[in-house]
Design a protein around this nucleic acid. Structure first.
Lengths: 261, 261
DNA sequence: ATCTTTTGTTGATCTACATCAAATATAAAC
DNA sequence: GTTTATATTTGATGTAGATCAACAAAAGAT
């Protein structure tokens, strides 16, 4: 894989049509926009922030298929060096148990932060794997900590970041825990990911979904076959349309009713 | 209900046999032990911390049964005023949807923190309900924020608290999301709660479990009948013993194997 | 004490989903 | 292009757990 830095320390603001998320819609914003305090004229972010690092699958590079294995941004159980915000593309967060069985514990879309829950033990709790050609912003932890010692305002912003993450983590999980039937689970999931993508795409009913059935089923805790059948059923019932990775939610109302059990 | 304060601002350290958790085993510790910096001689905690507030069910007080409804410490959707650490007893964290259907989103045992995920929107995301006669430490948010402005060290400690919570939240949920069978789910749950209680009780195989079958089943997303059958089966198979709210894990090995699917 | 309500257990049946299996579609490799 | 691997869909069958129902035990209310 390649990690190609195209660092420039300006905030990005682009058209909604761009595949890159605007800084103003990014959860990392509190710690990676220059701090506006008077006595802190220097831009601390230059010390710890690298903007828009490409995470590209090098095709034909090895015997492993990029589609199947993806490209790892960071690795479960390795020491924490940086936390990341997704600029473009989708990441899956994956854990492996002792027997090597993979469990997908979440997905991250543009504007969302990952790795921050490693700040407690300084070890990544999961691997982050790029689904396709993605890019991220990289916030190095050691200099971030150093900077926050001289800038209380930055510390305050870090708290803001962490509380938001805690809240959203809760929200994403609660959509899935304790759901009875598989169709309500799937409806909740589809609504959840469209909602999250709407923050930067501006469209809560359509997304380009690069997650494979395998990973989706793994995350939802159902079989691929069941997922496939449900997607077919949802399409027949005109709840969604889904072809060529393009997913549209056709009836938000009906889906929401389904998702609420 | 009654909230009786027995505030004294000393750290509590008691014998393992006590039903109250020691401060040294409490997740709130980073923000509620006096800060030891030289130029910050005053004890900030006196400004925001109230130790050991009793949360007691007033029996015969109303038509509502205390056992069934429990005693609310704080209420979903209400503005955040304080975050709490459990001193003794067990709390259930409960959400209600528009139709009034209850979903248990977690439990909190002595030494564990709750309400901190409301720091993002300043609104509680769930109700906390005491199962029995409990006590908590109460950390008022407004003065805590004020104090942290003058004591960067406190801010640092708050970050530590939040990262730990983020980590543990992840850990507790991951034990449950994507589990296939109900017995592996139950095994994971029993191991999880014993583990968490061991931090203060020192015993990872025995706990006094005051959670009703109803709440346990609700949290696990299975039916009470199924839970009852599984508990019977686990007892027959000598995996656990469970009578009079006293739960013992008889074979950690076997349970762990079960929990790993 | 009795009466009532809630909580927990056990049995019988039904259904949603897993599992097994095979076919088709898509993408990578040559 | 062809071949091979991987992803996805569809069908047939079995089973775990939901649902319905009745009963037992415990806790509160009177």
């Amino acid at each position: 894989m390649t990690l190609t830095s195209k660092a420039q320390n300006h905030a990005y603001s682009e058209h909604k049509t761009s595949r890159y998320v605007d800084c103003e819609n990014c959860s990392m914003q509190p710690v990676c926009l220059p701090i506006g305090s008077e006595n802190q004229a220097i831009d601390l972010t230059s010390n710890y922030l690298t903007r828009r690092v490409e995470v590209s699958a090098e095709k034909n590079s090895s015997s492993l298929l990029s589609q199947a294995t993806g490209v790892k941004l960071f690795d479960q159980a390795k020491p924490l060096t940086a936390i990341f915000a997704v600029c473009s593309g989708t990441f899956k967060l994956s854990q492996q148990n002792e027997e090597g069985i993979e469990t997908i514990v979440g997905f991250r879309f543009p504007g969302e932060v990952m790795g921050e829950d490693a700040l407690f033990l300084n070890v990544y709790n999961y691997s982050a794997i790029a689904l396709g050609d993605n890019s991220v912003c990289q916030v190095f932890v050691a200099p971030l900590s150093a900077c926050s010692k001289v800038a209380p305002e930055l510390q305050q912003n870090l708290i803001q970041l962490l509380t938001k993450q805690s809240y959203e983590q809760q929200l994403n999980n609660q959509a899935l825990i304790g759901k009875k039937s598989a169709d309500c689970l799937l409806a909740a999931f589809l609504l959840n990911i469209c909602q999250r993508n709407a923050k930067h795409s501006g469209n809560a009913t359509e997304i380009e979904l690069s997650i494979s059935r395998h990973d989706m089923a793994n995350f939802l805790g159902i079989r691929r076959e069941t997922l496939s059948r449900l997607l077919s059923k949802f399409q027949q019932e005109q709840l969604i349309s889904f072809k060529e990775k393009q997913l549209s939610l056709l009836s938000l109302e009906h889906l929401k009713r389904l998702a609420n059990n």
